[in-house]
């Protein structure tokens, strides 16, 4: 069955342009199309009408690269929750629906054009400490590091974050907690991550705060996260941050504190 839809799409020429909604009619949309395939069809139609196609970010189109993401009817990645825009299929819409499509809106993510935003602030957070220092070549045999299955599984739950930014777009404060907490938790949970644990959390959280708003526990982030990242990781990050600050006062932050490996 084919759908006829009315789209209200945010168009913005560049970062300094004011931007506005434009309305387009999308007919002959099939329910098997993904949301981005629907936009492809609309773009072909716009080209035929001599209107510039809508710019939107995307790459893998299988929900893993984290490149795509638009706000659909007020919700990042659309109505379903737990999915990326590229994996949202048109079978979740009805013929006659009006759909508004907007870019992520957050202070930390300025619009580049139409639905494309700059998420460079996420990279800055990783740069600040979202890694384990392990220069190439120096590693011991992999099986000498034992990691309990439970720890490995929880670290993997956190590491599954795709860095799309939906959490920030969903947050009324534009906070970056869920993204940051996912990376802090992934690395701070693992035995390999212990030596830099306290320095990592301090540096990442401090960097986050220079770009993003503050978290007031709305929980909207978790609801829209396509990778199912739990807000429990935020609590874990906050605990680590407090402990790190306390240690910092005692002047111990850059030392390996074996007694505290948790």
């Amino acid at each position: 069955m084919n759908l006829s839809l009315t789209l209200k799409v945010w168009r913005q020429q560049g970062p300094d342009d004011e931007g506005c909604f434009e309305t387009y009619q999308a007919n002959d949309i099939t329910e098997h199309m993904s949301f981005l395939e629907m936009l492809d069809v609309v773009n072909e139609q716009l080209l035929a009408e001599n209107k510039e196609p809508i710019a939107f970010d995307h790459d893998c189109r299988e929900g893993i690269c984290g490149m795509c993401g638009v706000v659909i009817n007020g919700k990042p990645h659309g109505p379903n929750g737990g999915t990326t825009t590229c994996q949202l299929h048109m079978r979740h819409f009805k013929s006659g629906d009006t759909i508004t499509v907007e870019p992520w809106r957050a202070r930390a993510f300025p619009v580049i054009k139409d639905l494309v935003v700059n998420r460079g602030a996420f990279d800055k957070i990783i740069q600040a400490g979202g890694f384990i220092t392990a220069p190439t070549g120096g590693a011991q045999d992999a099986n000498l590091t034992l990691v309990s299955k439970a720890t490995a599984d929880t670290a993997m739950d956190a590491a599954a974050c795709i860095g799309c930014g939906a959490c920030v777009a969903a947050c009324p404060n534009g906070a970056g907690q869920l993204f940051t907490a996912a990376k802090v938790s992934h690395l701070n949970l693992l035995p390999q991550g212990q030596p830099e644990r306290w320095a990592r959390v301090t540096s990442m959280v401090d960097t986050m705060e220079t770009y993003f708003g503050s978290c007031t526990n709305y929980g909207e982030c978790e609801a829209v996260c396509p990778a199912g990242i739990s807000i429990n990781f935020i609590a874990q990050m906050n605990r680590d941050y407090l402990r790190a600050k306390f240690k910092d006062k005692r002047g111990q932050i850059r030392q390996v504190d074996v007694a505290d490996e948790g």
Binding site: F131, A134, A142, S148, M156, H186, L190
Partner: peptide, 22 residues
């Protein structure tokens, strides 16, 4: 063989057995 060692050192969360081995 070196690749797996390197990746584990970096914190790549490979699947584990109950005893903690890969």
């Amino acid at each position: 063989r070196n690749i797996i060692d390197q990746c584990v050192a970096q914190g790549v969360p490979f699947a584990r057995e109950y005893g903690g081995l890969l």
